[in-house]
């Protein structure tokens, strides 16, 4: 329970971050959504044993984090929080893939360890970008971008309503849970039957609320379409942002910058 509750506080703080006013925040959401998707595709398209070529990709989150003035610690913490699944699956690689790929001094490094590290790197890159996207764009912005890109209106409207009532319903649920905890002793009262009643109650209340919301919409002229005023513009800034970063990603994708730089340094040292 505490996990979910804190997670909801974090939704609030991500929304607060999205209220910032920097160059990145001001960009049209579409530019950010498209660039992020290209970034993710580039990152995951690497071979499973690739490590060094992935590292230069950190430049994108690093630049965005600083230009958008986001707190690094907060995002790192969120990253750690969701790491288990990728870790759980990836950690099997060293067991199943024991071919030695290369040696560092006397220690042989197996393919499994390399691909495990690669999975964790991919994980850091892709997840941190998803978080940065929402922290600079706001949920509302992402929804608008999705709609402009072609997502059906029914779907985006529903996403907005979900986000709006998340907080209201989570508040209700947490009050129910507290009320139950205060009157449950020795594990009695937290079983299935009571659970069914509580969730059922919450569901009925939710259905009533949906009806009231529908009424409130109708009272203000709702006939099935939700109109919103769009204040975004895809201008030169957006165009350059998307184009320049996509170019960077493609270059990094096809030229292993780490390898080149390292080779250059070694040569220089000799």
């Amino acid at each position: 329970m505490s996990r979910i509750e804190t997670a909801f506080f974090e939704i609030g703080s991500l929304d607060t971050l999205a209220g910032g006013d920097t160059f990145v925040h001001r960009l049209d959401p579409r530019a950010k959504v498209v660039t992020t998707l290209i970034f993710i595709c580039c990152v995951v398209s690497f071979q499973k044993y690739q490590l060094s070529a992935l590292l230069p990709f950190f430049i994108f989150p690093a630049v965005l984090l600083t230009t958008a003035q986001l707190p690094v610690g907060f995002l790192l913490k969120k990253l750690l929080f969701v790491a288990p699944f990728a870790f759980f699956i990836g950690v099997f690689n060293p067991f199943f893939d024991q071919t030695i790929l290369f040696h560092v001094g006397p220690v042989g490094i197996s393919g499994g360890w390399v691909s495990f590290a690669s999975i964790m790197l991919r994980f850091c890159l892709t997840i941190s970008m998803a978080l940065i996207l929402i922290a600079t764009t706001s949920f509302n912005g992402v929804c608008m971008a999705l709609e402009k890109i072609g997502a059906p209106r029914v779907f985006t409207v529903q996403l907005l309503l979900l986000h709006r009532y998340l907080f209201v319903l989570v508040g209700e649920a947490s009050r129910l849970v507290k009320a139950r905890a205060l009157r449950s002793f020795n594990g009695r009262g937290t079983g299935m039957t009571v659970f069914g009643h509580i969730v059922g109650q919450l569901l009925l209340r939710t259905l009533d609320r949906a009806q009231r919301i529908h009424l409130a919409m109708q009272c203000r002229g709702f006939t099935g379409e939700i109109h919103q005023m769009r204040l975004f513009r895809f201008g030169w800034h957006e165009f350059f942002f998307t184009l320049a970063w996509s170019a960077v990603f493609l270059i990094l994708r096809f030229y292993n910058l780490s390898q080149l730089l390292g080779g250059f340094l070694l040569e220089f040292a000799q």
Binding site: F139, L160, L161, R164, R209, R212, A216
Partner: peptide, 12 residues
């Protein structure tokens, strides 16, 4: 409405 949460359904 009695509960303003029912009435304020838009994102901003």
């Amino acid at each position: 409405f009695q509960d303003p949460d029912d009435q304020l359904f838009m994102p901003t």
